[in-house]
């Protein structure tokens, strides 16, 4: 109980620290929303007027306190540029980015865990070498390039799937929505699997070399049986920790890949907002993403404890 409270406390402190960093860094960037919005043809007076309306002429500390006060009350504020409510803007994009990153994550786990284990067990065989080589390649190739390639082959040549975009009616037409997410999901999943296969493989290799596994084999268990019974649970501990990070990565991957597929999700919104220095939107997005990552880490910690009794024991001893 005390441990859980400590964790939540640490989480909140991390969030506040993250928000301070984001706030300060964004304001260190040259240029501001007033200039980016008004553009060529407007006068300095008009710029100053807009700045005072937006409150960006106030000292940074004042701005931060005001913003934090709003956020605590659940109000994410209004976009500097479009004057739309930030909460609405973000809610509008969630039905694209959330399914995209979650599906990519699940797909990546389903592919990489079996592949990683096989690659470890057959580490010297042709299958193991092939999996390693392909995953190496997958790590080296940038994710957007994979996306471009898939579009070229499957959308433009074969015409099996849309090249980009999301149905205007959203999820009202589930088939169309799913079709438009297939290529982006596969793209992000490929990039993630490449990394995860390597983790699973090395975690499995670690346990394969352990004494207890050799003992199990000497007791007459087959290679796979021994691994399944004694190995996987142990191999899972480091893998679960990486899964947490990878779920966050899948969100970031979605952010990168949305641009390639012209998907109006959080990533597109983030890019737009940074370019136009739309600080309330950027702050809300970065804060949200940070929160997700921190919460994932907390869950991973708890998950590891559930899998590995030694971690629980350590805590009691301490």
């Amino acid at each position: 109980m005390r441990a859980a409270l400590l964790r939540i406390g640490a989480l909140l402190i991390s969030l506040v620290l993250a928000s301070v960093v984001v706030f300060v860094v964004l304001r260190l960037l040259p240029g501001d929303a007033a200039g980016a919005t008004l553009g060529v043809g407007t006068t300095t007076d008009q710029l100053d007027q807009l700045r005072s309306e937006l409150g960006t002429d106030q000292p940074v500390v004042t701005q931060y306190v005001q913003w934090l006060g709003q956020v605590v009350r659940g109000d994410l504020g209004t976009s500097f540029v479009s004057r739309l409510a930030v909460a609405d803007l973000i809610t509008q994009k969630l039905p694209i980015t959330v399914p995209l990153s979650l599906s990519a994550f699940v797909l990546a786990v389903l592919v990489s865990v079996p592949l990683g284990v096989i690659a470890a067990v057959h580490r010297r065989g042709p299958v193991g070498v092939a999996v390693s080589a392909v995953s190496q390649l997958g790590v080296a190739v940038p994710v957007f390039w994979v996306g471009v390639l898939l579009v070229l082959v499957l959308a433009l040549q074969a015409r099996w799937l849309p090249a980009g975009g999301f149905p205007r009616t959203g999820w009202d037409d589930p088939a169309a929505a799913v079709r438009s997410l297939v290529l982006p999901v596969v793209t992000v999943a490929i990039a993630m699997s490449a990394v995860m296969v390597r983790y699973v493989r090395s975690a499995t290799l670690d346990v394969l070399d352990q004494d207890y596994l050799r003992t199990a084999r000497s007791l007459g268990y087959g290679r796979w049986h021994a691994l399944a019974r004694h190995g996987l649970r142990n191999a899972a501990v480091p893998v679960v920790s990486i899964l947490g990070i990878e779920l966050a990565t899948s969100l970031l991957g979605a952010v990168v890949i949305e641009n390639v597929f012209a998907l109006p999700g959080l990533g597109t919104l983030l890019l737009d907002s940074v370019t136009s220095r739309d600080l309330p939107v950027v702050q809300a997005l970065v804060l949200g993403l940070t929160a997700v990552v921190l919460i994932m880490n907390a869950l991973v910690d708890l998950g590891q404890r559930a899998i590995d009794p030694r971690l629980r024991a350590k805590e009691v001893a301490a």
């Binding site: 471009v148 433009l156 090249a163 975009g165 390639v260 890019l271």
Partner: peptide
């Protein structure tokens, strides 16, 4: 009017009839 940030995505949409 559909808006694009990436001109490759824009032209792909035209090519595929969107």
């Amino acid at each position: 009017f559909r808006f694009f940030q990436d001109t490759t995505a824009l032209n792909n949409a035209l090519l595929t009839g969107d």
